[in-house]
Write a protein that binds this DNA or RNA. Structure first.
Lengths: 337, 337
DNA sequence: TCGTTCATCCGAAACGTTTCGGATTTGTTT
DNA sequence: AAACAAATCCGAAACGTTTCGGATGAACGA
């Protein structure tokens, strides 16, 4: 493996000069620079980023800490679309992306700070971690630049990008209300998700605007899973036969809900309207196609990456970035008869 | 940031001893080791992997070179499921994964070897690159341990994991033949994909077994895209009205084909049987649900990672790993009337 | 008593860069 | 001709580890 020293001796200059030549400094003669570049090419030189990082004390790598990058979550296109957005932005910068995943037993043994500092990542993007995850506190305590996705916390060195979940959920439920529904169930995610709290908030808000009192027994947790949502919808429909529509906090759960409805011989949307949240690829293909709140998952990742790079490269302070959502009306919701 | 030196002076020993203590060498007294570990904890020490990698001349990172990790490919769950498999295995090893993507303009400027050597990755997994990609030749020329996914090339330092595409395609077409179909169209991927060549092979093989002569005009290239497959199916059905079934080289294309069929007022499967390849999540949800050849995408990635680690850690030679495929019969194919 | 072995430790070089603080040469100004 | 400035180069330290080759002393057997 050829090093800067080989080039130096071959070109008859010092390592300093080689380094400065290759890095575009101005205090090297045009001739010498050309010579050095030529020798570098001849010897098929590639710089050792490890050595460079060591002395510069920055690695030009960003950590991507995602929990739930597994078989199940792949089906739900959410995680991966966000990742794709992150990757897209990072690909055009000088940074590289290293993948940590918090599910592995290996990484659970290390603290967040250890994880990041060992690899000397310059910054981190965190996605999908729960509100009771010990990493969350650690991130705030450490001083590693970081941006969260869908978790609205911030400090001197941490920002986030998210969508307006309250507003999104409110719009979903308003859609149902405008269609005449008054008994609206909800299949939420789980207690350890910020988005779940916010979406429940939006649900309540919409009901309130229509003067409808909130009933706790109309809300179930499906922990963002298709199967769980199926089961919860089953019991919801059995316990509360008056329900004419249900708002699900994710599309995958909405799909589970529709299965359950069909199983109980409800027609969707004639007997039961179902609205989802996310707008994953599946949603437009199933039958009936799913009315949902669309969030731009790609943009979520893209903007997170952009923010982090801005923080690192230009010492900008972290931001709080909220993206818009959009109601997509398809065929799983209809007016009450 | 505390270093090994700080620990050394604090504990009253040399850096050598600290290093050896922390790395579990036997020639350090139990007392001293305990003392050192305690000081390390007190000072909140985390080792600098950059320095370690530099001197050890191995980085404990693996490169993941994927082309087509973008908005479109996320819909097709293939790429990401493979990635998920890779990630799952790697997560349980000492290695970390760094993401390169070949689409970016940044990385296109560098050669494969440069890309890998700069980051000093110990090995690479390559996924989704085309047969005419210059990287392919470079991989063979370089001496970086590497395993391909779905590209059957091998050498002293490169192995691959793939599925038996000839057999899979053959089974798909045999399924149609057994249902009585004799005019079978094919929507293939593109000329730059190994799997496309192989699947075409299987298609021909099956026809041959039934004594049916191969007709070139029954085969179109849809370049693995839903839209393209839609268009190609349109023209196929118009040009060849006798066709009663079509074999698509990917599920996403099969979905495009079904759309086209519906557009032309074909009923699926009554008027046209459609069989796909891959078995992506979407396939079981669309209507009619898609008959397809299932390949274990997660296992593809998992095994690739496993092989690479085996090569690196235990100096094992690379292998050629072929996974089984399975015919999944759903509702998009039926017997001819 | 004298090697010998064992347990435990350490000094210093090495990995491949970057960068600070000068050194040398050449040209320019007074 | 002296003084200064600009252009171009270089030596050496530094980054934080690992590891080779030994050093030290204690215990032990002959």
């Amino acid at each position: 493996m050829t090093t800067i020293k080989h080039i130096a001796s071959q070109a008859g200059v010092s390592v300093t000069t080689v380094s400065r030549a290759l890095n575009g400094y101005s205090d090297v003669n045009a001739e010498t620079r050309k010579k050095i570049e030529q020798v570098a090419k001849e010897l098929n030189y590639s710089p050792n980023s490890l050595a460079r990082s060591l002395v510069r004390n920055q690695s030009e790598t960003l950590g991507l800490l995602v929990s739930g990058f597994n078989k199940e979550s792949v089906k739900d296109g959410f995680t991966v679309e966000v990742m794709s957005g992150i990757n897209s932005y990072i690909a055009e910068t000088q940074y590289d992306l290293v993948l940590f995943n918090t599910d592995s037993s290996k990484q659970r043994k290390k603290t967040y700070t250890q994880l990041c500092r060992e690899r000397r990542v310059d910054g981190v993007i965190l996605q999908g971690i729960k509100t009771d995850d010990p990493y969350l506190k650690e991130v705030m305590d450490s001083n590693i630049p970081c941006v969260f996705i869908d978790i609205p916390v911030s400090s001197k060195h941490v920002g986030y990008v998210s969508t307006d979940n309250v507003e999104g959920a409110r719009n979903a439920v308003l859609h149902l209300l405008e269609l005449g529904h008054r008994n609206i169930g909800m299949i939420n995610g789980h207690k350890q998700a910020f988005v779940s709290k916010e979406r429940l908030e939006g649900y309540k808000l919409a009901l309130q605007e229509y003067g409808i009192s909130f009933k706790d027994q109309l809300v179930k947790d499906g922990s963002f899973g298709e199967e769980e949502a199926y089961r919860e919808t089953m019991s919801l429909l059995k316990e509360q036969p008056d329900v004419t529509s249900v708002f699900c906090a994710s599309d995958l759960m909405a799909i589970g809900a529709i299965s359950a409805a069909k199983q109980l011989n409800y027609r969707v949307p004639e007997d039961l309207s179902v609205i989802g949240y996310d707008d994953i690829p599946l949603s437009s293909y199933i039958s009936p196609s799913l009315t949902t709140i669309s969030q731009d998952k790609f943009a979520l990742g893209y903007n997170a990456a952009k923010m982090l790079v801005k923080m690192l490269k230009y010492q900008q302070p972290p931001e709080q970035c909220i993206l818009k959502t959009e109601l997509i009306i398809r065929s799983s919701t209809s007016a009450t008869s």
